[in-house]
Deep mutational scan, measured.
Amino acid sequence: MQRVNMIMAESPGLITICLLGYLLSAECTVFLDHENANKILNRPKRYNSGKLEEFVQGNLERECMEEKCSFEEAREVFENTERTTEFWKQYVDGDQCESNPCLNGGSCKDDINSYECWCPFGFEGKNCELDVTCNIKNGRCEQFCKNSADNKVVCSCTEGYRLAENQKSCEPAVPFPCGRVSVSQTSKLTRAETVFPDVDYVNSTEAETILDNITQSTQSFNDFTRVVGGEDAKPGQFPWQVVLNGKVDAFCGGSIVNEKWIVTAAHCVETGVKITVVAGEHNIEETEHTEQKRNVIRIIPHHNYNAAINKYNHDIALLELDEPLVLNSYVTPICIADKEYTNIFLKFGSGYVSGWGRVFHKGRSALVLQYLRVPLVDRATCLRSTKFTIYNNMFCAGFHEGGRDSCQGDSGGPHVTEVEGTSFLTGIISWGEECAMKGKYGIYTKVSRYVNWIKEKTKLT
C-alpha cells in the first residue's frame, strides 16, 4: 500500500490518463441519441435557420407576430419608411378606419389613436360632414345658397324668414311668412316636400332668348283662358290664391305678392273693366268669414305684352289694390325667389296649380277651390304637342294621358313649387288646347323671366 501511494504521488498524470480511459469505455446513459432527441424537440425550422439574422431580410411573422416588435424591426421587413409607417399605425392600436367614419364618399386613412378623412370636392370637416359648395344638395341650405369668396357655403332665406341657429334652416321672422300653410287642420295635408338634388348652379339658368321682337298675326285659340281631375282644397291650404270678379264672377285667378299687390295673367284683364279681388276665398257660393274683398285701382301688364300681336306672350300683369290686405292664416303671400332659384325650383319637376275653373272641358265651374299636382314636361315634348308657338318664356306641365289639367277660369292662378315646406311661385296658368285632352298640356308663363320686374313694381313704400 505504501508503494502504491508513492507511485500516485510521483505520477499524477498517469492516474488522470487511467481515469479518462475508464470513462470513455463506459456506456453513456444520461444523453439520448440524435434521433430520439429530435422526437422530443420537434420544432419547425425557421426561415433563416442556421444563418445569422443580421444578414437576412426581415420576416413579418418572425419579427412582429411571434413577439412584439419595434418600429426598427418592422422597418427591416418593409425596407421602406412609408410602408412601415402605414403598417405601424394599425399594428400599434388597430384600424381606426374600420367603422368607416368618413361621410359623403370620403376616404379614410388610419393613424395612431386617430384617423384622417380625405374629402371629395365640396366637403370638409373631420368626417367630411361639412358642405362647402352650393353645387351639392344646395349646400344643405333649406332655401338659398351662395358661395363666399373663400368658396364656403353661405345660406340665406327669402323675405319674412331668418336663418336658424344651425345656419342652414329657415324659420319665420314674421307672423305670416310667405308660402307657408298655417291653418292647423290643413298642415297635415301639406304636399310632399321637395329635397334639393345635386345641381350645376353655374349652368342652372337656361341660355334662352326671349323672342321679344317676333311679330306674329293673332292666333285663334280655343278655350285658351284655361282644375280638371283635381281635388277639393281645404280652407287655408292655398292662402296665396285669390279669385278675380268682373263682368262675371271667378273669371280668373291670381296670387298675393304682398298686402297691396296681386300677380295674374295679362290676358285676364281689360282696361276700363272694374275688377274686384277676393282673398281668403274657399267656396265661392258661401260666406265663410275668411274672405277679404278689395278693388283694383291700377293694372300693370308687362311692358312687352301686346294682345294685338299675341294674347299669351309675356302673359303676366300686376294688380294694385285700393287697401292693403290683412295677412292671416287664410290670406298669405306666395314666396318669389330670384331668377336663378325660381328656375331651379321649376326644374324640380312638379308643381301645384289651383283655381275655381271648370271641372271638365266646357263644363261647370268649381264651387270649392280645386288643386292638382302636375309634372313638368320637357321642352321637346311640349313643342311636338301643339302647332302653336311655345315661346321661351312659357313652359308645359300636365299629363300625356289627359284627364287632369287646369281649365277655363283658372287662368292667372299660381303654379307653385314647394321647397322644404315653403311654396314659391314658378308659373302662372296661361293657356292650353281644350282641357285635359290626351297628348295636350297646360301652358304656363315662366315666372323666372319676370321676377325682377315683379319685385321692382310691387315694392311697398
Rank of each mutant, 00 (worst) to 15 (best):
D378N: 10
I429D: 07
L19V: 07
F251E: 08
Q57W: 06
E142N: 04
P44Q: 09
R191S: 14
A149C: 05
E61M: 07
Y352P: 02
K459R: 06
V242R: 00
L52H: 15
R43G: 15
K260F: 08
T81F: 06
P197F: 10
W453P: 00
L383K: 14
E82F: 04
E418N: 11
L325M: 03
Y391F: 11
V153P: 12
E116W: 02
V202H: 08
R180H: 11
C435Y: 03
E27S: 12
E434L: 12
C28R: 03
P239S: 03
E456N: 11
V257D: 00
N5F: 10
Y450C: 01
G351P: 02
A265S: 10
L130P: 04
H34M: 10
N36G: 11
P414F: 10
Y201H: 10
V4K: 12
N104H: 10
G58M: 09
Q185R: 12
I316T: 00
E35H: 05
K438F: 09
K311P: 11
F388R: 09
R46N: 06
S204W: 10
N306R: 10
T81D: 10
A233L: 06
P172S: 09
K457S: 11
E27P: 03
D110P: 14
V368Y: 07
G58P: 15
T84F: 04
E35N: 12
E124D: 02
L32Y: 13
N295T: 10
A265K: 01
K293Y: 14
E54K: 08
C268Q: 01
T332H: 05
F78Q: 15
T426G: 00
F78I: 15
V77S: 11
T389V: 10
R373T: 08
E129D: 07
P120G: 05
G349A: 06
E320D: 00
L325G: 00
I344D: 12
V296K: 01
R358M: 07
H289R: 06
Y330P: 01
G421R: 08
V227W: 12
F221N: 10
T381M: 11
R62V: 08
E86D: 09
Y115L: 01
G253C: 11
V419K: 04
H34Y: 12
V359I: 15
N258Q: 03
K68D: 14
A266N: 02
G94R: 14
E281F: 08
E72A: 15
P235A: 10
N127P: 00
S365F: 07
T445E: 02
W453L: 00
G409D: 05
S148W: 07
S411H: 13
T85F: 05
I454Q: 00
N343K: 05
T194K: 08
V227Y: 10
